[in-house]
Structures are given as structure tokens and as C-alpha cells.
């Protein structure tokens, strides 16, 4: 089912960050949102993720959709290692794939270029490594909609390309909403690109 956003508006105090935003996000497609800093991209994603409520407008097609997300910040438990951070999202029925064993997690981390760093507390990893752990975690979850809030920020070109391929491979057939201010990232991920004014 497509996600239909109709005349969405959101204000913080006097500042209107989203005004009458409408879009149709086709099921199983990548949908990239571009806007300058402070343009309401993250707010839009937060509304879609259910972390904010819109002042006006409506969203259809999100009902019963399981969401996974790469946040703008890594939002990892610093004292836990990469494996445990990923395992943290498992357990509740339908929240993680059945194959999410420790060996499977090791394999996914290896694909993200994190081999040898699996057992370090993530606070001891570099920013780029933490970013990749956050991406692996998001893709390890069971989801219908994947929300990516500037997922490649802080990654070097090699790792950026590696993670783009990883996301494309793992999210095949799933609805993906990507927020970025880098047109090359949006183009590389494919799908529709819109500009939030």
C-alpha cells in the first residue's frame, strides 16, 4: 500500500517547519527527500516514524506498517558492543528476523566492513564505524518502511558506496524514505527525488 501524505504542516512555536506538504510514496520504492538545513526533513521523518504529531494534514498507508530507522544521530547504547546493540532490537515477536543469531549478526557486520570490531563497546568505535553499526541495526529489523535520516553522514567515499550497496541489497522490495542534502546520494539510491521547500 502506498503512503499518502496530504497537506502536512508542522510548527514549532512560531516557526513553521513544514507547510502543506503532500506526496505519494509508492510501496517498494525509494523516495528521497532533499531540502536545505532546517528545511523540515527530519521533522517529516519523525512524523512518519510516529515520534512527532503533525499540526495539520493526514498520512494514509502507515497503519500496521513496521518501521525501521537510521536516525540522524547513531542512537546506539555506547556501553554495548555492536553485536549487542543489534541484538537489542530482537526478541519481541515480529521485531527481528528469525535468523538473527550471533553468527548472522557477525556476518552482517562483516559485510559493513566492521570485522574485528564486533566486541568493542560502540563508544570506543569511530564515528564512521558507529554509523555503519546503526545502518546494520536498522536493516536487521523486520520492517515494511525503512526511514534513513542522512545515513551516510560521516562516512568516507569507500564506506559510503559500500553502505549504499548494502542498503540497496537488504531493502530490495521495501519502501525506503531517504533524507539527504547530497544529490549524489539521492541519485545513487535511485527512485523518486523530491525537494522540500
Amino acid at each position: 500500500m502506498d503512503i499518502v501524505i496530504d497537506s502536512l504542516s508542522k510548527k514549532f512555536g512560531e516557526k513553521e517547519v513544514i507547510r502543506n506538504f503532500s506526496a505519494r510514496i509508492k510501496e517498494g520504492c525509494v523516495f528521497s527527500v532533499m531540502a536545505p538545513s532546517g528545511g523540515g526533513k527530519t521533522t517529516l521523518l519523525r512524523i512518519l516514524a510516529g515520534l512527532e504529531t503533525a499540526d495539520k494534514g493526514r498520512i494514509e498507508g502507515l497503519e500496521d506498517k513496521k518501521i525501521s530507522m537510521v536516525f540522524q544521530e547513531d542512537r546506539l547504547c555506547g556501553y554495548l558492543n555492536a553485536v549487542d546493540n543489534i541484538r537489542l532490537i530482537s526478541g519481541k515477536k515480529g521485531s527481528s528476523p528469525l535468523e538473527m543469531t550471533e553468527g548472522w549478526i557477525y556476518g552482517e557486520l562483516e559485510k559493513a566492513g566492521l570485522k574485528g570490531n564486533e566486541k568493542y563497546p560502540v563508544r570506543e568505535l569511530s564515528g564512521g564505524m558507529r554509523r555503519r553499526v546503526a545502518i546494520v541495526r536498522a536493516l536487521a529489523a523486520v520492517y515494511d518502511l525503512l526511514i534513513l535520516d542522512e545515513p551516510f553522514a560521516g562516512l568516507d567515499m569507500e564506506n559510503k558506496n559500500k553502505m549504499m550497496d548494502y542498503i540497496k541489497e537488504k531493502s530490495k522490495g521495501k519502501t525506503v524514505i531517504l533524507v539527504t542534502h547530497d544529490i549524489t546520494e539521492a541519485e545513487a539510491m535511485g527512485g523518486e527525488i523530491i525537494y522540500l521547500k
Binding site: G50, L51, K66, R75, Y79, G91, S95, R137
Partner: peptide, 24 residues
Amino acid sequence: KGLLEMAEVFRISYPKRVRYIFLP
């Protein structure tokens, strides 16, 4: 609060939230 939002999005169970987010 960021971790609590993460837990909400990933539907992490409440006992796990207490153990891994609140207690530490």
C-alpha cells in the same frame, strides 16, 4: 531521550528498555 525514541521505533520490549537503557 534519543535512545528512548530508538526503543519506540524498534519496538523494544519494556523489560529490555529498563535493563539496557534506564538502569545503566
